[in-house]
C-alpha cells in the first residue's frame, strides 16, 4: 500500500509540475465528467474515451466521474466552477443545449472552453408501413392542413427529436407552435406507439429504429443528415425533398473556462490523438457511432450556431417563454 501511495504522490507531483509550467502539450492525468448517471449515453461516451485514451497509452490515468441531474446542467455548473483546471473534460451534446434553456439554467455552454465534437447521429422521420404517407412532402402537406391531426412520437420534451419535429414544421411553413408532439420515455415506448399505429409519425436516432426499418415495419420518410446514410442508402435526406433542414444529434467534449492557450491546445491535441487511435475507431464501430470530429475554432462557431438555432425554435414552439 505504501508503494502505491508513493507512486500516486509522484504522479500527482509530476502532473502538478506539468500543469504549473504548462510547457509541454501533454496531459498526464485526465478527469472526464459524465453529467449523467452511470449507464446513460454520455456516461457511455466518457467511459469509451477512458478506454481509448488509456488503451492507446495517450494518457496515463483517466478517471470518469458522474454528476447527475437536470439534463446535465448540474455537471455543467460544476465544470464552470473549475476555472483554469486543464485536466478536466466534460462530455456533452446537442440535448444539453435544449436542457439549459428548458431548465432556465444559470450557466450555459458558451461559458466553457469548447474542445471538440466527437460523434454524431442522424435522426430519421418514420411512419408505419401501412401509413398513406410516402414522402416527407406528404407529411408536410398533412401538417400544413391540420397540425393537430399529425401526432409525433419521440423522446423527451425539448430533446433532439422534439426540436427536429418543430424545425420540420417551420421549414415546411406549418405552425410550429401547433405541433402535436407526444414525448415518450425511452425509444422503446415511442417505437411501440408507432408499431401499434397510435401516432402519425415517429422521430428518433436512426439506430433506434434500424431493426424495424430493415424488417419493413417502418418506412423512412427522411433522414436529417446532409448526406444519405451509408447503412440506409435508400432513405432520402430532407434536403433532397426540398426541405431546407439539417440536424445532427452530436456529442462533444468541453473543458472548464479560463484555460491558457497552452492548456487548451494540450487538451485538443490529446483528444485528436485519441480520435485517430485504433482503439477509438474500434469503439466507434462497435457502438455504431459516426465519427464527426471537429475541433478548435470550427467547433466553437458550430456550437454558437447550434445554440442560436435551438434557442430560436424553442421560443417559437413555446417551450421557453
Amino acid at each position: 500500500m505504501l508503494t502505491s501511495f508513493l507512486k500516486r504522490g509522484a504522479i500527482t507531483a509530476v502532473a502538478f509540475a506539468a500543469l504549473s509550467t504548462a510547457a509541454f502539450a501533454q496531459v498526464n492525468e485526465l478527469k472526464i465528467m459524465a453529467p449523467a448517471a452511470p449507464g446513460g449515453g454520455w456516461d457511455g461516451t466518457a467511459r469509451s474515451m477512458q478506454q481509448a485514451l488509456t488503451g492507446a497509452g495517450i494518457v496515463k490515468s483517466v478517471q470518469v466521474n458522474n454528476v447527475t441531474g437536470a439534463g446535465g446542467t448540474i455537471g455543467l455548473a460544476q465544470l464552470i466552477g473549475a476555472k483554469g483546471q486543464g485536466d478536466q473534460l466534460m462530455v456533452n451534446g446537442f440535448v444539453m443545449v435544449g436542457a439549459i434553456l428548458l431548465n432556465k439554467s444559470p450557466v450555459n455552454l458558451s461559458q466553457t472552453t469548447p474542445i471538440a465534437r466527437l460523434t454524431a447521429e442522424a435522426e430519421v422521420i418514420v411512419v408505419p408501413t401501412e401509413s398513406p404517407l410516402k414522402t416527407a412532402k406528404d407529411l408536410a402537406e398533412k401538417l400544413k392542413a391540420d397540425p393537430a391531426k399529425v401526432t409525433w412520437a419521440g423522446g423527451s420534451a425539448g430533446g433532439t427529436d422534439h426540436i427536429l419535429a418543430a424545425l420540420f414544421a417551420q421549414a415546411v411553413g406549418a405552425d410550429a407552435k401547433k405541433i402535436n408532439y407526444i414525448p415518450f420515455s425511452g425509444g422503446g415506448e415511442a417505437l411501440a406507439a408507432m408499431l401499434g399505429g397510435r401516432v402519425t409519425a415517429g422521430v428518433s436516432g436512426y439506430g433506434e429504429f434500424e431493426g424495424q426499418i430493415k424488417a419493413g415495419k417502418l418506412r423512412v420518410l427522411a433522414v436529417s443528415s446532409g448526406k444519405r446514410l451509408e447503412n440506409a442508402p435508400d432513405a432520402p435526406t430532407l434536403k433532397e425533398q426540398g426541405i431546407d433542414l439539417e440536424l445532427l444529434n452530436w456529442r462533444s467534449v468541453v473543458a472548464p473556462p479560463g484555460l491558457s492557450a497552452e492548456q487548451t491546445k494540450a487538451l485538443i491535441d490529446t483528444v485528436e490523438k485519441m480520435v485517430k487511435s485504433k482503439e477509438w475507431q474500434e469503439i466507434l464501430k462497435a457502438r455504431g457511432w459516426d465519427d464527426s470530429y471537429l475541433a478548435g475554432a470550427e467547433f466553437d462557431s458550430f456550437l454558437k450556431n447550434e445554440i442560436e438555432r435551438v434557442s430560436k425554435v424553442m421560443h417559437e414552439v413555446g417551450l421557453v417563454k
Partner: peptide, 15 residues
C-alpha cells in the same frame, strides 16, 4: 466497478 464514490484527500491517495 470503476465507480468513483465521492472522494476527499484521503480517497485520492488510493486512486
Amino acid at each position: 466497478l470503476t465507480l468513483i464514490l465521492p472522494s476527499g484527500p484521503l480517497e485520492r491517495l488510493f486512486l
